[in-house]
Design a protein around this nucleic acid. Structure first.
Lengths: 208, 208
DNA sequence: ATACTAACCGACCGTTCGGTCAGTTTATGA
DNA sequence: TCATAAACTGACCGAACGGTCGGTTAGTAT
């Protein structure tokens, strides 16, 4: 893998620099396609020094995943406590989560790839935890709206929550593809996307 | 990677056996984590014989992706020509596509991973083509319903199509995770899932 | 200055990687 | 039956892998 380092660079030094470099490379190419030498090079250090800070490649990978999950988790706490009507809160939670995963695109891609990879016991549990946590909070919000009588009684709250999360996650995953489809005009505007999604979720597409 | 072969076995022999084995392993572990020796072992042949049939590892990988995309593409043709009302046809297209990607889970995972990987020029264009094709057909159907006056004029047809495809794709991606969440009772029932999704897409979740 | 430790490195290890070579077996068709 | 080509193989190649070795530097407390 003699691919040129990247457009990205590492600012910090020491252990933090290693973590940064590893996050960049793992997110970009995946676990197996990244060598410890490549990480050392991008971090401006030596391979043995990485092993001074981390037991092995798996542990370095796990450290990055855990950091990403924790950050996402604490940001969800903030979002959930917001005020407003039920509909506003649900829409803002969805929009905030989407902004968050886009802003931290590298770690999101890392966690998502691990959660959805279908194999490797490496860090799947940790990654699954994040996906499930977003999902559970969405379900709770939808269920709450249902109890308040704002939502139809005959819909499955987990299904509505699933549709919101799937829209957000698939939006994030397909952003590079969407930008090549000219008729899509929300590829660069996550706010407009969420607004449209919530409109359809709330009101449906049928003519009244 | 001395992981035991798998529960899967290869039935065919010769070139077809190599393709089968490679598809199994690539889908399970991804390109970089699969060695040519492992493929040879699972295909009950030798490594040089793989190179007799395929120029190199990349070409073998590309051959599998192309086969998968072609099969999916021809199945979409069938689905699109179905009769019925607009709503029936849209629901059946969505359900059929979901059944299809679940039935061919291995190749779907392969194509999806390639399309969403965010790197590697290996086969991304081919994989993107499949994602875009499903999307374009959905957009055309939604737009048709809009022209017939069955759908609201103020919704973006690409957005409705995106939500349907995202629900299907994310359903496929998260099936293993969903089975661990007890409150989800459509994890094993793609038909019920599609029905619920289309209900929400058409009618929304709000109390009338 | 001394002693101790964390941070760091060049050189190297055994193993496996993608890929090749020189040759053998198997099927085909005249 | 015999030539020809396709299918197939064991042994091997240089390169790169994850990881370790012995040793050096830099900071810090006494």
């Amino acid at each position: 893998m003699q691919t040129p380092p990247d457009n990205a660079t590492v600012s910090a030094s020491g252990e933090q620099g290693i973590l940064e470099a590893a996050e960049i490379l793992f997110a970009e190419k995946g676990f197996d396609a990244v060598s410890m030498s490549a990480i050392a090079k991008l971090a401006n250090t030596s391979k043995p020094n990485i092993y001074h800070h981390f037991k092995n490649k798996d542990e370095l990978y796990l450290a990055i995943i855990k950091t990403a999950v924790q950050r996402a988790s604490s940001l969800l706490d903030e979002l959930e406590g917001a005020p407003g009507t039920f509909r506003q809160r649900l829409a803002r939670f969805s929009a905030g989560q989407l902004d968050n995963i886009i802003a931290h695109g590298r770690s999101t891609q890392l966690v998502l790839r691990e959660a959805l990879s279908g194999n490797s016991e490496r860090a799947r549990e940790t990654a699954n935890y994040m996906v499930s946590e977003v999902f559970n909070r969405l379900v709770a919000m939808v269920r709450h709206g249902q109890e308040n009588g704002e939502l139809r009684e005959d819909i499955d709250p987990t299904l509505a929550a699933f549709m919101i999360e799937s829209a957000n996650m698939f939006y994030f995953q397909t952003m590079p593809i969407m930008k090549n489809i000219p008729e899509i005009n929300y590829a660069d505007d996550a706010g407009a996307f969420t607004e449209g999604v919530m409109d359809i979720i709330f009101n449906g597409v049928l003519q009244k």
